[in-house]
Design a protein around this nucleic acid. Structure first.
Length: 549
RNA sequence: GGCUCCAUGGUCAAGCGGUUAAGACACCGCCCUUUCACGGCGGUAACCCGGGUUCGAUUCCCGGUGGAGUCACCA
């Protein structure tokens, strides 16, 4: 069989040779040790936390080593493509601090190793497919869906591995004439890799995250070119990552099982393997069991969700880095104010067991991140969020920026900043009592205080409240009132002799707190009232008095 | 089912033959405090099981068990 003849029959339009492409895409001129990584999303318009997690690995590995991080669009499946997905993806990643040096961008492509969209690289893949055919390492396969299904049935009956390989690869040894006949007959075909591997033989590769991996050789005649001439992922990955000179391939562990295919392909083409970094999948609790994050089942884990809720990108990044590198957390404790970029990230320190997504931890990290920001930064951040998702709230906040700054300044800075701001939606709710339109009584009056007393407290407070009182003076009045009404002035006294008092001054002030903020817990009440102003304070007190009836 | 990966408290995890088995989150208690929060102190809680190897296994090997992933002309 003259494979060259076959190759020319199949790919008459392909004139370039592999050597031509080697010349067009020469090895990159980078310093020793620089890593080249890439993100290769398919433009389905959906990206979740797990994708971001992987993107951080790519980004850190490349930028920490003075290398290149590029974006390649893997759009070889036209059925799944979603319009406008690419800019959305770039923006979403940018929002979380992931930026590319090369590849697809908002304004076309940047870089010398393009095109960076697989749908535009048809000729390149075909050239290498042609080469494989010419070497007798690939062949046209005319099997129809029905034939393949029949083979599968037979294999299931025989309890052998399913797939097209060995004796089941019916088009493996077609003669040149037969191929000509079938083509002129109008039969459609795919190009399959002619595997010479065996499940009996094992090979090992070193994964940067997992160490040495042992796997059986690939024995499947996998499709490398679909009948449309478009490559499958396997083939595109091998050709692209070689030609784009990727040094480190970071991808989820769901790819582990197709690694033998990729290794076989790299070998067949005579290329050096990149360093693989198979990350663990991010898991989620689903009832009693863990399972991989799924785009269909877990829309709440999409990046868009975190943006909508107003999670600070730095916090999300911080969280992901925490679960990404086991020594990050300790480093962060030792270097609370250093930029995350200073951390020396290593693939070896990455976990290889499935990680459960922990919202509590994310929230905790959010608190720390927000506590370090200035009031101005918090306001800016809230406004950015609100303008996009809650325009009415944005307008309201912009109405009185000075007041907003005061609100966000409460217990901010200093050694012990409050940490009760988590994410925008929560933050707005947290401060909502400052706005009459959003004010609601959310808690109950303290159990220690009778309704009758509550009314009396509100009434006296209404009479005595003077916004010119400073904090100690204001609280003196509170204590006086508590004492007069049979409540302990010092909480300790009440604790010691609970029978002698109705309650303590904290309970009394909580009546006021509830009237003013709608809750039994809030930051310093005096400060809140100073920010609100006399009118609003008296209004709330009067309203509460009325509501009790 | 075949193949592969994984296995330390509820969660994330350190550990890489000898440790009182770190730390963080969550939880509980105490202190501080007009509330909450912050902060401080303390606490509950773990090496999946069974065989080896070894003077000694959480650590190395084998076998189970459990979890996950994958078996497409999807990525």
């Amino acid at each position: 069989m003259d494979y060259n003849k076959l190759a020319n029959l199949l790919f008459p339009q392909i004139k370039k040779t592999p050597a031509d492409y080697e010349a067009i895409y020469p090895p990159r001129n980078l310093p020793e040790g620089a890593k080249v990584t890439r993100l290769g999303p398919s433009p389905t318009g959906f990206i979740h936390l797990g994708n971001l997690y992987g993107a951080f690995v790519d980004e850190r590995l490349a930028h920490q080593s003075g290398g290149v991080f590029f974006l390649r669009i893997e759009d070889t499946d036209d059925k799944r493509e979603v319009q406008g997905a690419i800019p959305m993806l770039i923006q979403a990643l940018h929002h979380f601090g992931v930026n590319f040096d090369e590849g697809a961008t908002m304004n076309g492509e940047v870089g010398d190793y393009g095109p960076y969209q697989q749908s535009k690289r048809g000729e390149i893949y075909q050239c290498f497919a042609k080469y494989l055919v010419s070497q007798g390492l690939a062949y046209p396969c005319f099997m129809t869906e029905e034939e393949i299904a029949a083979v599968r049935e037979e294999q299931e009956a025989k309890k052998v591995n399913p797939g097209i390989y060995g004796e089941y690869a019916k088009c493996r040894d077609l003669s040149f004439e037969e191929v000509v006949d079938r083509i002129s007959d109008g039969q459609e075909y795919v190009i399959r890799f002619k595997s010479n591997g065996s499940l009996e033989n094992h090979f090992t590769v070193v994964d940067a995250i997992r160490g040495e991996l042992t796997m059986p050789e690939n024995d499947q005649d996998v499709v490398i070119l679909k009948k449309t001439g478009i490559p499958t992922y396997h083939f595109a990955h091998v050709v692209d990552d070689h030609l784009m000179r990727t040094t480190h391939v970071v991808r989820g562990e769901e790819w582990l099982s197709s690694l033998p295919i990729h290794v076989a392909l790299f070998n067949a083409l005579g290329w050096e393997l990149p360093t693989y970094c198979h990350t663990t999948v991010l898991m989620k609790m689903d009832g009693e069991t863990k399972r991989k994050l799924s785009k269909r089942k877990d829309p709440e884990l999409s990046l868009e969700y975190y943006k909508q809720e107003g999670y600070h990108p730095l916090a999300v990044r911080e969280y992901l880095l925490t679960i990404l590198n086991s020594n990050y957390e300790e480093w962060r404790i030792a270097n609370p104010d250093a930029p995350a970029e200073d951390f020396q990230f290593t693939a070896e320190k990455m976990s290889s067991s499935g990680t459960l997504f922990d919202l509590d931890k994310l929230n905790d990290i959010c608190k720390d991140v927000l506590a370090k920001m200035s009031a101005e930064e918090v306001l800016r951040y809230m406004l950015d969020w609100a303008e996009e998702y809650q325009p009415a709230i944005a307008a309201m906040m912009k109405d009185d920026p000075d007041k907003m700054i005061k609100i966000f300044s409460i217990d901010r800075g200093g050694d012990k900043p409050r940490k009760d701001l988590v994410y925008c939606r929560q933050i707005f709710h947290f401060i909502s009592y400052f706005f009459d339109d959003h004010f609601m009584i959310e808690d109950d009056y303290p159990a220690e205080v009778s309704m009758k007393d509550a009314k009396a407290i509100l009434n006296r407070y209404f009479q005595e409240y003077d916004e010119n009182d400073d904090n100690p003076a204001w609280f003196e009045k509170m204590k006086a009132m508590a004492g007069d009404m049979g409540y302990a002035i010092k909480p300790k006294d009440f604790k010691k002799n609970p029978d002698q008092y109705k309650g303590h001054v904290g309970h009394v002030s909580n009546v006021i707190r509830l009237a003013i903020t709608g809750r039994t817990n809030s930051p310093d009440l005096w400060l809140i009232q100073q920010i609100m102003g006399k009118e609003q304070v008296r209004g709330r007190i009067a309203q509460a008095f009325q509501d009790i009836g």
